[in-house]
């Protein structure tokens, strides 16, 4: 593991319980890591959210996406980030797991999607 990856994991792991997916979308989820959702959903809350806003799978935990929604509304952040909450996010590139999302952001690697993803418009 390189220094950059260690540093990123140290910071983001401590603050956001980062799972090092390598394709960070924290800015668009109210700084709430979607990979902490037990179903690792990237596109919002499932239909199983409990009446109290807690997770279907882990009843004592607040739904990650409910939390993300509230934080997106409440936290001071650029409007463009807030508007990205409902974006359709592509499938995760599992090859990037454990790599630095900062490096992937800088290189543009985290923007690569499967060729078929955008073929149909």
């Amino acid at each position: 593991m390189g220094v950059g990856v260690r540093l990123e994991h140290l910071v983001k792991g401590a603050v956001w319980d980062c799972r090092m997916c390598g394709t960070c979308v924290l800015h668009s989820t109210g700084m709430t890591c979607p990979m902490t959702c037990p179903k690792t959903l990237r596109n919002g809350p499932c239909g199983g959210v409990r009446e109290n806003g807690h997770c279907e799978v882990v009843p004592e935990m607040r739904c990650v996406w409910t939390k993300a929604y509230e934080r997106t509304q409440q936290l001071p952040m650029p409007r463009v980030w807030r508007e990205e909450y409902n974006d359709l996010r592509p499938p995760v590139d599992n090859r990037l797991k454990g790599t630095s999302s900062w490096a992937n952001l800088f290189s543009g690697r985290d923007k690569q999607v499967p060729a078929g993803w955008k073929a149909d418009t």
Binding site: P91, P114, A115, G116, W117, A119, D120
Partner: peptide, 10 residues
């Protein structure tokens, strides 16, 4: 995507 004639891979 499949309906458009390709798999996800293209």
């Amino acid at each position: 995507t499949l309906r458009s004639g390709t798999y996800l891979s293209g």
